[in-house]
């Protein structure tokens, strides 16, 4: 049975969510982690587009570009139920990717200035975002591949500059096997010394006293193989957990 790398990473990120946390999830794998929030744990999701309290489903389960489907679904009692009130999608609610989103009960909306006060000002318990490269110093590169089109950094630099915990979701190696956990990032940086936790498909690394410390590995993974697939010098915690795996 093959491992679903993205879902595996997403599931292992969710172990860092605590009840009551205020968390920003970036696009891609971080968004998937909302599906693995443990039962009984309630977290409030921040969307930099301007709200706190995004429904765990993240994007509506209909084609948001299909106007007829939106109209139909927004009148669907499942989403627009007056009693459950706030669980609604609307053309004027978008997530950080600009996609139509659903507010959860008790959500609040605010403008972009306030949204980034939350990000920079240490009001987020965690921000989870994708990575291209992470290095020994906790530097993160995630917004630009040199030579390719530059989409812009969006809110990533602000989010990592203030969140209490920065969790990076990234496949451990590139498609050609090249390491992405490096001694020194090569791609342009998003921020320096910012990464708290790195979750890959084969291990979880925490930065403890400034050192890359492996705290969990995928079942069957050995220290030797992990070091071989990693350019950075890694250290190992006394007790190493076994990661949860999601199969294809």
């Amino acid at each position: 049975m093959a491992v679903n790398k993205r879902e595996t990473i997403a599931k292992n990120i969710a172990r860092y969510f605590h009840d009551g946390d205020f968390v920003n999830l970036g696009v891609g794998i971080p968004t998937l982690s909302a599906n693995y929030i443990p039962e009984g744990t309630e977290i409030i999701l921040h969307a930099e587009s301007g709200f706190a309290g995004q429904d765990g489903a993240i994007t509506p389960p209909w084609d948001v570009n299909d106007r007829e489907a939106c109209d139909r679904e927004l009148n669907n009692p499942k989403w627009a139920d007056k009693e459950n009130g706030w669980k609604i999608g609307h053309k004027d609610i978008c997530d950080a990717s600009g996609n139509l989103a659903i507010l959860s009960k008790g959500a609040s909306c605010f403008d972009s200035v306030v949204s980034f006060m939350m990000a920079r000002g240490g009001h987020l318990d965690a921000t989870v975002l994708g990575g291209l490269q992470v290095d020994e110093e906790g530097n993160l590169a995630n917004w630009m591949v040199p030579g390719k089109n530059i989409p812009g950094m969006g809110g990533a630099m602000d989010l990592v500059s203030g969140a209490k915990k920065v969790i990076v979701a990234m496949e451990h190696n590139a498609k050609d096997g090249a390491p992405k956990v490096l001694k020194k990032c090569v791609f342009p940086l998003t921020a320096i010394n910012c990464v708290s936790v790195l979750v890959t498909d084969i291990c979880i690394i925490e930065f403890i006293d400034g050192k890359m410390t492996v705290v969990a590995m995928a079942p069957g993974m050995t220290k030797e193989e992990l070091q071989k697939r990693t350019e950075a010098t890694i250290h190992f915690a006394d007790k190493i957990d076994v990661m949860d795996i999601v199969e294809e």
Partner: peptide, 8 residues
């Protein structure tokens, strides 16, 4: 602001 320190 701390945003962008150490980057381009």
């Amino acid at each position: 602001t701390p945003t962008g320190v150490g980057t381009v």
